[in-house]
Nucleic acid binder design. Structure first.
Length: 197
DNA sequence: ACATCGATCTACT
DNA sequence: GTAGATCGATGTA
């Protein structure tokens, strides 16, 4: 099976979480669903750190958040609001409970699967929210703990680079604590964001 | 055992 | 812009 680009190196994930949240912009999530390739570019992320009142790890380890304490480079999936899954990239060395939430992706390949998984929505809304993108990609609880290093589940560098001027930041969305920390990052002007800016 | 509330989404006004 | 859905994880007792 031919690779589309280079997989992110294991130490990509071991830097501080805010750095990784920015570095993930422009990287591509590649899933293989039987015969179909699903490919999408990360355009919006949020960092969740230790000692961060908005993070699931703020009060220490629990059954839900244990994946956040694993070595960086694996996937943390959780269920919320009785309906939605959210997908994170775990960061830092084992024992550090931090991760990056994927908030929006730009579709590149697999449009038919995305449309089938999210019937009736316009193409512009297929992947533009943390619960929407997991629905379109078919991410469920079973993906919790998967490493992004398998042929059917990868994070790739396809050379889509952005300068720091092209990256915007803002407070994180939908949280009730630590509302002022500017730990949401996005590609300025992308039509695929969950919000205009 | 129970009460609270959430890293959201959709539909409706 | 706002309301309601929906249910599992968590904290408290």
């Amino acid at each position: 099976m031919k690779s589309l680009g280079r997989n992110l190196a294991p130490n990509f994930y071991l830097r501080n979480t805010v750095t990784v949240a920015k570095a993930l912009l422009g990287k591509c999530l590649h899933l293989r669903h039987s015969d179909t390739s699903l490919l999408a570019e990360i355009v919006e992320t949020e960092a969740y750190c230790e000692n961060d009142p908005a993070s699931h790890t703020y009060r220490g380890p629990t059954p839900r958040n244990q994946m956040m304490y694993e070595e960086g480079g694996l996937c943390y999936v959780y269920f919320t609001y009785g309906s939605h899954f959210c997908m994170n990239v775990v960061t830092g060395k084992k024992g550090k409970g931090e991760a990056v939430l994927l908030r929006a992706l730009a579709p590149l390949e697999g449009w038919e699967v995305f449309r089938k998984n999210r019937p009736g929505v316009p193409d512009s809304s297929l992947l533009n929210g943390p619960g929407k993108l997991t629905q379109a990609l078919g991410i469920f609880r079973e993906h919790n703990g998967w490493r992004f290093d398998r042929p059917d589940f990868q994070l790739l560098d396809l050379g889509r680079d952005y300068s720091s001027r092209q990256i915007g930041s803002s407070p994180r969305i939908g949280i009730t604590k630590a509302k002022t920390r500017p730990w949401r990052f996005f590609i300025k002007g992308s039509p695929w964001l969950s919000r205009k800016s």
